[in-house]
């Protein structure tokens, strides 16, 4: 098993990149909604924001991925 430091050192940049992509998607949506009006249903946007909120505020240990997967079942895909 990796040490906590190894995990941060190994995955920080990759996770930073994924968060930037997520931020960019939300910015893209806002720009499009501003010029064209919002989507008929914003359920997908809302569930993404819920997931981010969950990550930011949860003090759970180890089961964040499971919690997010359960959240994402709200959206039929």
């Amino acid at each position: 098993m990796q040490t906590p430091k190894q995990i941060l050192d190994t995955y920080y940049l990759e996770t930073r990149c994924m968060l930037l992509e997520t931020a960019a998607v939300l910015d893209r949506y806002d720009r499009a909604a501003e010029s064209q009006g919002q989507a008929e249903s914003e359920a997908k946007r809302e569930v993404l924001l819920k997931a981010l909120n969950e990550l930011a505020n949860s003090d759970r240990r180890e089961d964040r991925a499971k919690t997010l997967l359960e959240l994402f079942t709200e959206i039929p895909t």
Partner: peptide, 17 residues
Amino acid sequence: YPITKCSPRRAVDILEK
């Protein structure tokens, strides 16, 4: 770049903006 600089999608966002 794949990870550490701008991404193709974010670059297109910048071009659109």
